[in-house]
C-alpha cells in the first residue's frame, strides 16, 4: 500500500465513524429497546386472547376486558387504589412543597443536611423493610384504620418522590426573581403569591404526578400493611396471579399500565415545558 492509499483509507474510515462513535451501538440499542418492551407487548397481546388460559392462543377477543370491568372485586380495588393515591398525593405534595421551599430558600441552618437526608430516607430503605417495619409499628400501637393505615404508609414513601422535582425546580430558580419582586415593592406574601408559586408550579405538578404513579403502583407495602378490606389493584392482581393465569389478569394489567403511561407522559410534557421555560 502506498502512503497515499493509506491516507485515503484512513480518511474514509474517519468519515464513516467520527471520534467517540463505535460500531454496533445502534444495533445494541435496538435490541435493548426490544428487551425493554417485548414483555409489555406480550402482556398486552395476550390480554386479547379468547382462551381462558393466558398462553394458549385460540383467537382474538375482548371478553376478558368486559369480564374485568364487571368484576366487583376489581372495581372495589380500583376505588381503593384511587382513594389511596389521591389522598397520599395531596398530603405528600403539600408536605414536600413546604419542605422544599424551606430547604431551598431558608438559607443555611443547623440540621439542614439532616433534614434533607430525612426527606430522602424512604427512597433509600428497601421497600420490604419499610413494609414490615410499618406493619410492626401499626401492630404495636394497635392502629387499625384499614385503608387509613395504607394511606399513612403511602404518604410517607411518596414524600421524596414529590420532593425531588419540586426541589430541582427551586434550585434552578434564581432568587433574583424574588429579589426583583421585592425591589418592585412586593411584600413577602405578594412575592410568594405572584412570583414563587407560579414559577414553582411545574415542579409541584410534576411532583404530584410522580407520587400519584408511585402510590398507584405500590404493591409490597400495601400487601403487608393493608388488611382484608383495603385491597388495592396491584394487591388484587397479585392474588389473581396466585390463583391461576387467566387473560383477565392481562386485561386489568394492560389498563393499569396504560393509565400509568398516560400520567408519566403528561409529567414528561409538563417537565419538558418547564425546562425550556427556564432556559434564557
Amino acid at each position: 500500500m502506498t502512503e497515499r492509499d493509506l491516507k485515503s483509507s484512513n480518511m474514509a474510515k474517519a468519515k464513516a465513524l467520527p471520534v467517540g462513535h463505535y460500531r454496533g451501538l445502534g444495533v445494541w440499542n435496538f435490541f435493548f429497546m426490544v428487551f425493554l418492551y417485548a414483555p409489555i407487548a406480550v402482556l398486552i397481546f395476550y390480554s386479547f386472547n379468547a382462551n381462558r388460559m393466558v398462553i394458549n392462543w385460540t383467537g382474538f377477543g375482548v371478553e376478558w376486558y368486559i369480564k374485568a370491568f364487571n368484576n366487583e372485586d376489581i372495581q372495589d380495588a380500583v376505588w381503593n387504589s384511587l382513594i389511596v393515591a389521591f389522598v397520599a398525593t395531596g398530603v405528600a405534595t403539600t408536605i414536600a412543597t413546604i419542605g422544599a421551599l424551606i430547604l431551598a430558600r431558608g438559607g443555611n441552618f443547623k440540621g439542614k443536611t439532616a433534614s434533607l437526608g430525612l426527606m430522602m430516607l424512604p427512597l433509600m430503605v428497601p421497600e420490604i423493610v419499610t413494609a414490615v417495619a410499618v406493619l410492626i409499628f401499626f401492630a404495636t400501637i394497635g392502629l387499625n384504620w384499614g385503608l387509613g393505615n395504607v394511606i399513612i404508609a403511602h404518604i410517607t414513601f411518596c414524600i421524596p418522590f414529590a420532593f425531588m422535582p419540586i426541589r430541582a425546580r427551586l434550585e434552578g430558580m434564581d432568587t433574583t426573581m424574588e429579589q426583583a419582586a421585592r425591589d418592585l415593592y412586593a411584600s413577602e406574601w405578594e412575592t410568594f403569591r405572584y412570583i414563587t408559586v407560579p414559577m414553582l408550579m411545574p415542579g409541584i405538578v410534576a411532583g404530584a404526578m410522580l407520587s400519584f404513579v408511585i402510590s398507584l403502583d405500590d404493591f409490597i407495602i400495601t400487601l403487608m400493611v393493608g388488611g382484608a378490606g383495603s385491597t388495592t389493584l396491584p394487591v388484587y392482581i397479585y392474588s389473581m396471579i396466585r390463583r391461576g393465569l387467566t387473560p383477565e389478569i392481562n386485561a386489568v394489567s394492560t389498563l393499569l399500565l396504560l393509565f400509568s403511561v398516560a400520567i408519566v407522559t403528561a409529567y414528561w410534557f409538563v417537565s419538558k415545558k418547564s425546562n425550556t421555560k427556564t432556559v434564557h
Binding site: 414483555p39 409489555i40 402482556l43 410522580l210 404513579v213 398507584l216 403502583d217 404493591f219 396491584p234 392482581i237 397479585y238 396471579i241 389478569i249 394489567s253 393499569l256 399500565l257 400509568s260 403511561v261 400520567i263 408519566v264
Partner: peptide
C-alpha cells in the same frame, strides 16, 4: 414507572 408486579408477571 409502570407496575413492577405486572412487568414481572
Amino acid at each position: 414507572w409502570t407496575n413492577l408486579l405486572i412487568r414481572t408477571f
